[in-house]
Amino acid sequence: MRTRRLSPGRILAWIYLAVILVVTVFPFYWILRTALSDNYALLGNPSSLLPVDFTWGPFARVLGLASAEESIAEGGSGATLDLGRYLVNSIVYATASTFLIVLFSLLAAYAFARLHWRGRDLVFSLFLAALMVPGILTLLPNFVLVRDLGLLNTFAGMILPYGLFSAFNIFFLRQFMLGLSAETEEAALIDGAGRVRILFGITIPMTSGPITTLSILGFIGMWNDYFWPLLVTTDESVQPLTLALAVFKQSSPQSQPDWAGLMAATLVAALPMLLLFMVFGRRIVNSIGFTGLK
């Protein structure tokens, strides 16, 4: 069997990949190592690569399974995190936002890709210009709008400003639709089918790959969103899990935060998204690559 020679270029490439892998994975390992450590013991040996005085206590504190005395004994604050409530809030926020973003992006992309109307290209250029506007510039106008509508501390206030428009999603879906054969849709039009029926009966099934990709990426983005919910919510009944982590950190009465408990909470919050990306990661990469060829 023929073997490949290890050229200097190949060796450098493998070294580069190994470095990138270590840099990417190490923060997740450090989170896990800290989450399995005793918070008091961490002060004495903060640079240890292994868990310091191994314990499941931080996870018990986050999940509300530890008493206040057990928590304080391991360097915790005695505070607990209502994980179930915040988890439900994050699911509602991420799911509803993702559904609206993908739905309205589909409608707009179909209008730009299949319908012919005056000023279409000009309007699409304006949509593309929105990609150049940093998101931070829209925070204040959106906040003022939500406040004036009386939607502070509501799911509607968190969801609607970013659930109705996404320039990237529209561009992404339009590029894919332009590459689809229009013959099937034209045949359906001749048979008397309307545009709405064609969209939901023909175009959307043919665009299931990009739709899945945008749904996963959108869900992950909404799940990890922090700054916008921080601006428009102060009520724990609607705050997502990302804000709960900040509350958990600030609830420590000691001078030293409960880093072990905080890392355990961070791991619990990030684990669903990591599993989601591990399962659908290949589909996301393939769909983006295929769309980029259009």
Rank of each mutant, 00 (worst) to 15 (best):
W56G: 08
R195A: 09
F143I: 14
N224T: 08
F54T: 05
R282Q: 15
L230E: 01
M263E: 03
P27K: 02
A265Y: 13
V52T: 14
E185P: 08
A13F: 13
T233V: 05
V102P: 02
I101E: 11
L245H: 02
F168W: 14
Y110L: 12
Y110C: 08
M132N: 02
M132A: 10
G179R: 11
G218W: 01
D235G: 10
L178S: 04
D235C: 04
L160S: 02
L103G: 04
V144L: 13
A41D: 01
Y93N: 09
W228N: 00
F172W: 08
N169V: 15
L63I: 02
G209K: 05
S252T: 13
G292D: 05
G221K: 07
I216C: 01
A111C: 07
L241K: 01
G281W: 04
I198E: 06
F112E: 01
G209C: 09
A129Q: 08
I136H: 11
T154H: 10
G150Y: 09
L137S: 04
L17Q: 07
A94Q: 11
T207E: 00
P272D: 02
L137H: 03
L50M: 09
G75F: 00
R195Y: 05
G150A: 14
L231C: 01
N39I: 08
A18F: 09
F219V: 06
T233W: 00
Q256P: 04
A260N: 09
S255C: 02
S7I: 12
N45C: 01
T207M: 15
P229M: 02
